Simulated scan of single mutants.
Amino acid sequence: MRRALDALYACAAFVAAASLVTIALLVLAQVGLRALGSQLPSADDFAGFALVATTIVGLAPAYRRNAHIRVGLLIERFPLGYPVRRALERGVTAVSALLVGWAAWHTIRFVHESYVYNEINQGLVAVKLWYPQSLMAFGLLVFFVALLDDLVTDLAGGTQSHLAAHAGDAMPVEK
């Protein structure tokens, strides 16, 4: 199971990175084409789609590597290993999982509606909106799985991924 989850997180990281590279390539193409008196149709639309994919699909990998910006005003008042801190970490992870799960559910419904109603973007290049929206749903779903993964790991006596990354511990790998 650990290998499958790690592969899922690696896939999300790859998609987020590829989306970021897409933005860079679109910007370079636009600069080059404008110098030649031309332009790439709907480049801003595609860059916007890629920006959303980079941001949302990158949530789970960033979270697991402790690269998220966390507001730890209350939690950081307690030392690591202290029972109150552990309870707060569990509570925050559980509430986060509920909120992200709720957002993922409604995003999936939103994508389904776009598919059913065949919604098309308003740019020069017609794109069915459920294509880029699917990346947003995928990213939220993977983030939800990552939060559940950490919650289950914590309840089983392990260390949440972002705490292990913060401490510099090696993530245990199931063989």
Results as ranks from 00 to 15, higher is better:
Ala18Glu: 14
Ala18Asn: 09
Ser19Asn: 10
Ser19Gly: 12
Leu20Thr: 15
Leu20Gln: 14
Val21Gln: 13
Ala24Glu: 14
Val27Ser: 12
Leu28Gln: 14
Ala29Val: 08
Gln30Thr: 15
Gly32Gln: 13
Arg34Trp: 10
Leu36Phe: 11
Ser38Asp: 10
Gln39His: 13
Gln39Thr: 09
Pro41Tyr: 10
Ser42Gly: 12
Ala43Asn: 10
Phe49Asn: 00
Val52Gln: 08
Ala53Ile: 12
Thr54Phe: 15
Val57Arg: 00
Val57Ile: 14
Ala60Met: 12
Ala60Gly: 03
Pro61Tyr: 00
Pro61Ser: 06
Pro61Glu: 06
Arg64Lys: 14
His68Met: 12
Gly72Asn: 08
Gly81Asp: 01
Arg86Gln: 06
Glu89Val: 03
Gly91Thr: 09
Val92Trp: 12
Val92Ile: 10
Ser96Glu: 11
Ser96Gln: 11
Leu98Lys: 07
Leu98Arg: 01
Leu99His: 05
Val100Gln: 05
Val100Lys: 01
Trp102Gln: 09
Ala104Lys: 00
Arg109Asn: 07
Arg109Cys: 11
Phe110Thr: 00
Ser114His: 03
Tyr115Met: 04
Asn118Asp: 03
Gly123Pro: 09
Val125Cys: 09
Val125Trp: 04
Lys128Pro: 03
Lys128Gly: 03
Tyr131His: 07
Ser134Asp: 07
Leu135Ala: 07
